[in-house]
Design a protein around this nucleic acid. Sequence first.
DNA 1: TAAAAATACTCCATAGGTATTTTAT
DNA 2: ATAAAATACCTATGGAGTATTTTTA
Lengths: 149, 149
Amino acid sequence: MGSNIRFDLRHMRAFVAVAESLHFKKASEALFITQPALSRLIKSLEDEIGAELFSRTTRQVTLSEAGRLFLAECQQAFTHIQRGIQLAQRAARGDIGRIAIAYNDFSINSSLPHLLEVFKEAQPSVAIELTYMLLTRTENYPDFAGSAR
Amino acid sequence: MGSNIRFDLRHMRAFVAVAESLHFKKASEALFITQPALSRLIKSLEDEIGAELFSRTTRQVTLSEAGRLFLAECQQAFTHIQRGIQLAQRAARGDIGRIAIAYNDFSINSSLPHLLEVFKEAQPSVAIELTYMLLTRTENYPDFAGSAR
DNA sequence: TAAAAATACTCCATAGGTATTTTAT
DNA sequence: ATAAAATACCTATGGAGTATTTTTA
Protein backbone atom coordinates (compact mmCIF):
# COMPACT_ATOMS: atom_id res chain seq x y z
CA MET A 1 0.00 0.00 0.00
CA GLY A 2 0.98 3.63 -0.27
CA SER A 3 3.02 5.18 -3.03
CA ASN A 4 6.30 3.28 -2.86
CA ILE A 5 8.02 5.49 -5.36
CA ARG A 6 11.73 5.54 -4.66
CA PHE A 7 12.81 8.32 -6.99
CA ASP A 8 11.86 11.94 -6.59
CA LEU A 9 11.24 15.15 -8.50
CA ARG A 10 14.93 15.70 -9.25
CA HIS A 11 14.89 12.49 -11.22
CA MET A 12 11.76 13.50 -13.05
CA ARG A 13 13.07 16.97 -13.82
CA ALA A 14 16.31 15.44 -15.07
CA PHE A 15 14.39 13.03 -17.23
CA VAL A 16 12.24 15.77 -18.76
CA ALA A 17 15.32 17.88 -19.46
CA VAL A 18 17.04 15.04 -21.30
CA ALA A 19 13.85 14.16 -23.13
CA GLU A 20 13.64 17.75 -24.33
CA SER A 21 17.21 18.17 -25.56
CA LEU A 22 18.11 14.53 -26.22
CA HIS A 23 21.62 15.48 -25.19
CA PHE A 24 23.01 14.77 -21.70
CA LYS A 25 25.55 17.60 -21.65
CA LYS A 26 23.11 20.26 -22.77
CA ALA A 27 20.45 18.98 -20.40
CA SER A 28 22.93 18.96 -17.53
CA GLU A 29 23.72 22.61 -18.20
CA ALA A 30 20.05 23.49 -18.24
CA LEU A 31 19.76 21.77 -14.87
CA PHE A 32 22.92 23.42 -13.47
CA ILE A 33 24.51 20.08 -12.65
CA THR A 34 27.35 18.16 -14.28
CA GLN A 35 26.93 15.57 -16.98
CA PRO A 36 28.00 12.62 -14.80
CA ALA A 37 25.50 13.63 -12.13
CA LEU A 38 22.78 13.70 -14.76
CA SER A 39 23.80 10.32 -16.17
CA ARG A 40 23.48 8.85 -12.70
CA LEU A 41 20.08 10.43 -12.12
CA ILE A 42 18.74 8.95 -15.34
CA LYS A 43 20.29 5.57 -14.65
CA SER A 44 18.86 5.36 -11.15
CA LEU A 45 15.46 6.40 -12.44
CA GLU A 46 15.57 3.68 -15.08
CA ASP A 47 16.70 1.13 -12.50
CA GLU A 48 13.94 2.18 -10.17
CA ILE A 49 11.21 1.97 -12.77
CA GLY A 50 12.69 -1.08 -14.36
CA ALA A 51 12.54 0.27 -17.89
CA GLU A 52 14.94 1.91 -20.32
CA LEU A 53 13.65 5.43 -20.90
CA PHE A 54 16.19 6.27 -23.59
CA SER A 55 17.89 4.26 -26.26
CA ARG A 56 21.35 5.74 -26.17
CA THR A 57 24.81 5.23 -27.55
CA THR A 58 27.57 7.72 -26.83
CA ARG A 59 26.56 9.41 -30.08
CA GLN A 60 22.82 9.69 -29.98
CA VAL A 61 19.98 9.68 -27.50
CA THR A 62 16.37 8.92 -28.36
CA LEU A 63 13.28 8.40 -26.25
CA SER A 64 12.12 4.82 -25.99
CA GLU A 65 8.43 4.00 -26.12
CA ALA A 66 8.51 3.63 -22.34
CA GLY A 67 10.16 7.05 -22.18
CA ARG A 68 7.49 8.65 -24.34
CA LEU A 69 4.74 7.36 -22.12
CA PHE A 70 6.54 8.28 -18.93
CA LEU A 71 7.28 11.78 -20.23
CA ALA A 72 3.63 12.60 -20.79
CA GLU A 73 2.75 11.58 -17.24
CA CYS A 74 5.69 13.50 -15.78
CA GLN A 75 4.54 16.63 -17.55
CA GLN A 76 1.04 16.20 -16.21
CA ALA A 77 2.39 15.62 -12.72
CA PHE A 78 4.46 18.81 -12.89
CA THR A 79 1.46 20.74 -14.09
CA HIS A 80 -0.50 19.62 -11.05
CA ILE A 81 2.33 20.42 -8.68
CA GLN A 82 2.76 23.89 -10.17
CA ARG A 83 -0.93 24.42 -9.94
CA GLY A 84 -0.96 23.18 -6.36
CA ILE A 85 1.72 25.69 -5.42
CA GLN A 86 -0.11 28.54 -7.08
CA LEU A 87 -3.42 27.69 -5.50
CA ALA A 88 -1.86 27.30 -2.05
CA GLN A 89 -0.06 30.61 -2.38
CA ARG A 90 -3.16 32.39 -3.51
CA ALA A 91 -5.26 30.85 -0.78
CA ALA A 92 -2.67 31.92 1.77
CA ARG A 93 -2.87 35.45 0.41
CA GLY A 94 -6.67 35.26 0.45
CA ASP A 95 -6.62 35.72 -3.31
CA ILE A 96 -8.79 32.76 -4.22
CA GLY A 97 -12.14 33.73 -5.57
CA ARG A 98 -11.16 37.33 -5.91
CA ILE A 99 -10.39 39.33 -9.03
CA ALA A 100 -9.04 42.82 -8.77
CA ILE A 101 -9.76 45.08 -11.70
CA ALA A 102 -8.32 48.53 -12.17
CA TYR A 103 -10.29 50.86 -14.39
CA ASN A 104 -9.86 54.33 -15.72
CA ASP A 105 -12.36 56.65 -17.39
CA PHE A 106 -11.72 55.17 -20.75
CA SER A 107 -12.42 51.55 -19.93
CA ILE A 108 -15.28 52.28 -17.54
CA ASN A 109 -17.10 54.06 -20.32
CA SER A 110 -16.64 51.31 -22.85
CA SER A 111 -17.19 47.57 -22.49
CA LEU A 112 -16.23 46.96 -18.87
CA PRO A 113 -19.71 47.20 -17.31
CA HIS A 114 -21.13 44.65 -19.69
CA LEU A 115 -18.19 42.30 -19.22
CA LEU A 116 -18.69 42.45 -15.48
CA GLU A 117 -22.33 41.54 -15.75
CA VAL A 118 -21.64 38.58 -17.98
CA PHE A 119 -18.82 37.37 -15.73
CA LYS A 120 -20.87 37.74 -12.56
CA GLU A 121 -23.53 35.55 -14.07
CA ALA A 122 -21.04 32.87 -15.06
CA GLN A 123 -18.93 32.99 -11.86
CA PRO A 124 -21.16 34.28 -9.07
CA SER A 125 -18.80 33.08 -6.34
CA VAL A 126 -15.88 35.17 -7.55
CA ALA A 127 -15.64 38.52 -5.82
CA ILE A 128 -14.71 41.40 -8.07
CA GLU A 129 -12.84 44.29 -6.61
CA LEU A 130 -12.84 47.52 -8.57
CA THR A 131 -10.09 50.07 -8.20
CA TYR A 132 -10.14 53.42 -9.87
CA MET A 133 -6.70 54.11 -11.27
CA LEU A 134 -5.69 57.51 -12.55
CA LEU A 135 -2.09 56.88 -13.51
CA THR A 136 -1.00 54.71 -16.39
CA ARG A 137 1.94 53.25 -14.45
CA THR A 138 1.17 50.19 -12.35
CA GLU A 139 4.14 50.04 -9.95
CA ASN A 140 2.04 51.08 -6.99
CA TYR A 141 -0.53 48.37 -7.61
CA PRO A 142 1.26 45.09 -6.95
CA ASP A 143 -1.85 43.14 -7.87
CA PHE A 144 -1.46 44.29 -11.45
CA ALA A 145 2.28 44.05 -11.74
CA GLY A 146 2.50 40.39 -12.79
CA SER A 147 1.58 39.08 -16.20
CA ALA A 148 -1.10 36.47 -15.62
CA ARG A 149 -2.06 36.45 -11.97
CA MET B 1 12.11 29.25 -16.82
CA GLY B 2 11.84 25.59 -15.92
CA SER B 3 10.10 24.14 -12.89
CA ASN B 4 11.92 25.76 -9.98
CA ILE B 5 10.33 23.53 -7.41
CA ARG B 6 12.67 23.13 -4.49
CA PHE B 7 10.86 20.41 -2.56
CA ASP B 8 10.45 16.85 -3.76
CA LEU B 9 8.21 13.82 -3.58
CA ARG B 10 9.20 13.01 -0.01
CA HIS B 11 7.74 16.32 1.06
CA MET B 12 4.57 15.69 -0.89
CA ARG B 13 4.21 12.17 0.47
CA ALA B 14 4.75 13.49 3.98
CA PHE B 15 2.16 16.17 3.42
CA VAL B 16 -0.42 13.72 2.11
CA ALA B 17 0.20 11.41 5.06
CA VAL B 18 -0.36 14.19 7.59
CA ALA B 19 -3.38 15.44 5.69
CA GLU B 20 -4.86 11.96 5.90
CA SER B 21 -4.31 11.32 9.60
CA LEU B 22 -4.13 14.92 10.88
CA HIS B 23 -1.65 13.60 13.43
CA PHE B 24 2.11 13.98 13.05
CA LYS B 25 3.09 10.96 15.13
CA LYS B 26 0.71 8.57 13.37
CA ALA B 27 1.68 9.93 9.98
CA SER B 28 5.37 9.57 10.79
CA GLU B 29 4.81 5.91 11.63
CA ALA B 30 2.96 5.35 8.39
CA LEU B 31 5.95 6.89 6.60
CA PHE B 32 8.51 4.89 8.64
CA ILE B 33 10.28 8.03 9.79
CA THR B 34 10.38 9.80 13.15
CA GLN B 35 8.05 12.58 14.22
CA PRO B 36 10.74 15.28 14.24
CA ALA B 37 11.81 14.33 10.73
CA LEU B 38 8.22 14.65 9.60
CA SER B 39 7.78 18.02 11.32
CA ARG B 40 10.81 19.28 9.46
CA LEU B 41 9.56 17.98 6.13
CA ILE B 42 6.25 19.77 6.55
CA LYS B 43 7.90 22.94 7.75
CA SER B 44 10.33 23.07 4.86
CA LEU B 45 7.49 22.41 2.42
CA GLU B 46 5.48 25.26 3.89
CA ASP B 47 8.50 27.55 3.81
CA GLU B 48 9.16 26.60 0.22
CA ILE B 49 5.61 27.19 -0.95
CA GLY B 50 5.19 30.21 1.26
CA ALA B 51 1.89 29.06 2.71
CA GLU B 52 0.71 27.38 5.90
CA LEU B 53 -0.70 24.02 4.86
CA PHE B 54 -1.96 23.11 8.31
CA SER B 55 -3.32 25.14 11.17
CA ARG B 56 -1.77 23.38 14.12
CA THR B 57 -1.27 23.69 17.82
CA THR B 58 0.40 20.93 19.80
CA ARG B 59 -3.09 19.54 20.37
CA GLN B 60 -4.77 19.57 17.01
CA VAL B 61 -3.93 19.65 13.35
CA THR B 62 -6.29 20.75 10.61
CA LEU B 63 -5.85 21.40 6.92
CA SER B 64 -5.84 25.05 5.94
CA GLU B 65 -7.60 26.18 2.79
CA ALA B 66 -4.20 26.30 1.10
CA GLY B 67 -3.61 22.77 2.31
CA ARG B 68 -6.91 21.51 0.92
CA LEU B 69 -6.12 22.91 -2.49
CA PHE B 70 -2.55 21.65 -2.46
CA LEU B 71 -3.67 18.18 -1.37
CA ALA B 72 -5.93 17.71 -4.36
CA GLU B 73 -3.13 18.61 -6.75
CA CYS B 74 -0.66 16.36 -4.95
CA GLN B 75 -3.01 13.43 -5.28
CA GLN B 76 -3.43 14.09 -8.98
CA ALA B 77 0.32 14.37 -9.40
CA PHE B 78 0.86 11.02 -7.67
CA THR B 79 -1.77 9.43 -9.85
CA HIS B 80 0.10 10.55 -12.95
CA ILE B 81 3.44 9.39 -11.61
CA GLN B 82 2.05 5.98 -10.73
CA ARG B 83 0.47 5.76 -14.14
CA GLY B 84 3.73 6.82 -15.77
CA ILE B 85 5.59 4.04 -13.99
CA GLN B 86 3.02 1.44 -14.98
CA LEU B 87 2.94 2.52 -18.60
CA ALA B 88 6.73 2.59 -18.82
CA GLN B 89 7.01 -0.84 -17.27
CA ARG B 90 4.41 -2.29 -19.59
CA ALA B 91 6.00 -0.70 -22.62
CA ALA B 92 9.37 -2.12 -21.59
CA ARG B 93 7.80 -5.56 -21.33
CA GLY B 94 6.15 -5.07 -24.70
CA ASP B 95 2.79 -5.33 -23.01
CA ILE B 96 1.32 -2.14 -24.41
CA GLY B 97 -1.23 -2.76 -27.10
CA ARG B 98 -1.37 -6.43 -26.39
CA ILE B 99 -4.01 -8.43 -24.60
CA ALA B 100 -3.44 -12.04 -23.72
CA ILE B 101 -6.52 -14.17 -23.36
CA ALA B 102 -6.55 -17.70 -22.09
CA TYR B 103 -9.49 -19.82 -23.18
CA ASN B 104 -10.77 -23.27 -22.49
CA ASP B 105 -13.42 -25.33 -24.26
CA PHE B 106 -16.16 -23.77 -22.25
CA SER B 107 -15.45 -20.16 -23.04
CA ILE B 108 -14.42 -20.74 -26.64
CA ASN B 109 -17.80 -22.28 -27.29
CA SER B 110 -19.77 -19.50 -25.67
CA SER B 111 -19.47 -15.77 -26.13
CA LEU B 112 -15.73 -15.34 -26.63
CA PRO B 113 -15.66 -15.34 -30.44
CA HIS B 114 -18.27 -12.63 -30.66
CA LEU B 115 -16.55 -10.52 -28.00
CA LEU B 116 -13.31 -10.74 -29.92
CA GLU B 117 -14.93 -9.53 -33.10
CA VAL B 118 -16.55 -6.59 -31.41
CA PHE B 119 -13.33 -5.68 -29.63
CA LYS B 120 -11.21 -5.96 -32.77
CA GLU B 121 -13.51 -3.52 -34.47
CA ALA B 122 -13.30 -1.02 -31.62
CA GLN B 123 -9.56 -1.39 -30.95
CA PRO B 124 -7.91 -2.57 -34.17
CA SER B 125 -4.42 -1.61 -32.97
CA VAL B 126 -4.53 -3.88 -29.94
CA ALA B 127 -3.02 -7.28 -30.60
CA ILE B 128 -4.88 -10.17 -29.08
CA GLU B 129 -2.98 -13.27 -28.14
CA LEU B 130 -4.95 -16.43 -27.58
CA THR B 131 -3.71 -19.22 -25.37
CA TYR B 132 -5.45 -22.51 -24.97
CA MET B 133 -5.45 -23.43 -21.29
CA LEU B 134 -6.48 -26.83 -20.04
CA LEU B 135 -5.86 -26.43 -16.35
CA THR B 136 -7.90 -24.24 -14.09
CA ARG B 137 -4.84 -23.10 -12.12
CA THR B 138 -2.98 -20.12 -13.53
CA GLU B 139 0.43 -20.37 -11.85
CA ASN B 140 2.18 -21.34 -15.04
CA TYR B 141 0.77 -18.42 -16.95
CA PRO B 142 2.37 -15.35 -15.43
CA ASP B 143 0.41 -13.10 -17.75
CA PHE B 144 -2.77 -14.12 -15.97
CA ALA B 145 -1.45 -14.11 -12.44
CA GLY B 146 -2.00 -10.45 -11.65
CA SER B 147 -5.38 -8.93 -11.00
CA ALA B 148 -5.81 -6.05 -13.44
CA ARG B 149 -2.98 -6.13 -15.93
C1' DT C 1 -0.33 17.74 33.69
C1' DA C 2 0.02 15.07 29.75
C1' DA C 3 -0.13 14.47 24.94
C1' DA C 4 1.73 16.19 20.90
C1' DA C 5 4.49 19.20 17.96
C1' DA C 6 8.79 21.89 17.68
C1' DT C 7 13.80 22.52 18.40
C1' DA C 8 18.88 21.26 19.30
C1' DC C 9 22.48 18.61 18.12
C1' DT C 10 25.02 14.78 16.06
C1' DC C 11 26.19 11.58 12.45
C1' DC C 12 26.22 9.26 8.30
C1' DA C 13 24.42 8.31 3.61
C1' DT C 14 24.24 9.97 -0.65
C1' DA C 15 24.16 13.55 -4.19
C1' DG C 16 27.24 16.00 -6.67
C1' DG C 17 31.85 17.37 -8.29
C1' DT C 18 36.50 16.24 -10.72
C1' DA C 19 39.08 13.14 -13.29
C1' DT C 20 39.10 9.42 -16.34
C1' DT C 21 37.57 5.72 -19.33
C1' DT C 22 34.71 3.74 -22.79
C1' DT C 23 32.21 3.89 -27.01
C1' DA C 24 30.59 4.77 -31.64
C1' DT C 25 30.84 7.60 -35.78
C1' DA D 1 39.91 11.09 -33.97
C1' DT D 2 36.62 13.10 -31.37
C1' DA D 3 32.37 14.06 -29.29
C1' DA D 4 29.57 12.28 -25.89
C1' DA D 5 28.02 9.11 -22.30
C1' DA D 6 29.53 6.03 -18.55
C1' DT D 7 32.38 4.92 -14.54
C1' DA D 8 35.62 5.62 -10.41
C1' DC D 9 36.59 8.04 -6.60
C1' DC D 10 36.17 11.61 -3.11
C1' DT D 11 34.01 15.13 -0.40
C1' DA D 12 30.52 17.80 1.84
C1' DT D 13 25.79 18.80 2.58
C1' DG D 14 21.58 17.90 4.42
C1' DG D 15 18.33 14.44 5.96
C1' DA D 16 17.32 11.33 9.62
C1' DG D 17 17.82 9.81 14.33
C1' DT D 18 17.96 10.64 19.65
C1' DA D 19 17.18 13.65 23.28
C1' DT D 20 14.88 17.55 24.92
C1' DT D 21 11.93 21.58 25.18
C1' DT D 22 7.76 24.01 24.36
C1' DT D 23 2.92 24.37 24.04
C1' DT D 24 -2.15 24.10 24.90
C1' DA D 25 -6.28 21.63 26.04
